[in-house]
Design a protein around this nucleic acid. Sequence first.
DNA 1: CGTAGTATTGAAACGGATCAATATCTGTGG
DNA 2: CCACAGATATTGATCCGTTTCAATACTACG
Lengths: 239, 239
Amino acid sequence: MKPQQQLPVDGPSISAISFESANGTTRTLLRPEQRRQLLGIATEAQLSPRTMVYRESSPLSHLYVVADGVLKSFRDFPSGRRRVMAFLFPQDIFGLAEDGRYVNNVQSITGARIYQLPVDKLLGLMKRDPDLHFQIICKVVHELRVAQRRAIMVGRHDAIGRMAMFLSMLERIEANQTRHGFILIPMARTDIAEYLGLSPEAVSRACSALTRRGLLKFIDRHAASVTDRPGFDQLVRSM
Amino acid sequence: MKPQQQLPVDGPSISAISFESANGTTRTLLRPEQRRQLLGIATEAQLSPRTMVYRESSPLSHLYVVADGVLKSFRDFPSGRRRVMAFLFPQDIFGLAEDGRYVNNVQSITGARIYQLPVDKLLGLMKRDPDLHFQIICKVVHELRVAQRRAIMVGRHDAIGRMAMFLSMLERIEANQTRHGFILIPMARTDIAEYLGLSPEAVSRACSALTRRGLLKFIDRHAASVTDRPGFDQLVRSM
DNA sequence: CGTAGTATTGAAACGGATCAATATCTGTGG
DNA sequence: CCACAGATATTGATCCGTTTCAATACTACG
């Protein structure tokens, strides 16, 4: 257990691009009173790195909201292969279930703070507040689009292209942004490999290739900065 | 080979696996009175094959429900590549939008019948009926799981494995089932290729390979039957 | 500060993309 | 109903990139 961060917390917060008209930027969905309501039924948990939140096919109990930190949602396959389905950042929700059981494993990567919302109480809350209901829909639709984006990324045939797209995705995540223009890469290379459907070696080589082409510069394994913005953006879009 | 059965229709119908406890089978979500309500705001459209329903980035106007037939949802990329994001079967919903605009193109493959639900009226209906709201969430979550399944499929490195998984998916779609145990394949090989992220040639070769291995037998291009169930299922799961 | 896990880099092999040619289907008009 | 033409599908040969295997460098954690 790590000492609790001192951030002004007024309850779970989620964000998404509305499917109705908006200006293209992510928006915080819940109104203050809704966040207070959710906080009423929520328990907060502080996770140290590499802590399992739940395992696949364990019974559904909570819906989760990330307050702080980064987590990964993944599945293990009979062959021993592991596939990372999504990385979870602050304001993301998780706890997708099917048939009363969670479909993925979720584990923290960095230290993290999460809200746990008991589903029964959440359903009760949603019944009394149609707007809260609607906000949740927006968020789920948002997750759907994120999943589609990953599918597009993984669909690319070139490893460098996938990697560039991935880094570009990291760059656009508000909760991951830094004031210095660096791209923060909280997860390990193997996590990225399992997310992009590549071997760790291919990820490594893609990083080298990006550097060699002068598009990117790695500060260390967990931070990079774009050195050729037009070139980088073109590679991201080229497909 | 194209059976277009007429079922007694009393309004839009959607189905999903609930995320709460259920018995693993897809369930019709809407109650009769809800379907009648939706029918009240819906217009029905009969589409001939290869009809565009909407194009990407055109303004959001309706949510759609498939009554009959098969459609595809796809995106075109600058390189000229096309990626099929999903095939849409009866009881599926579509019309995913971002920022007030549709994100994909949707086009009918076979002849199809769809319900068009104006979003403004739908939102009104959902405000007055929290349960309807909830049903829609269930369906969206269901779509999310389907998208994840595609991501898993596309993540496989072997073409035969992807193809087997795809056929297995087709087989499990209730609205696509036949009484003779055939797997109906309504879409073209190129559509499958664009869905699986393979070249048309690779899809073709995968079909041949499945036949050569004695797992499957193709009646014609749009129907097949499994000749070695254990072998087929094992291939599907092996990853 | 040491050690185990993680990352990078190199060499070889496999699999799918691509190019090319042929076969088959679909739907249109005679 | 049949014939024809354009589109779609299959099959073959070659090329390229990623996987795999292997060895070394690095890093983070106890």
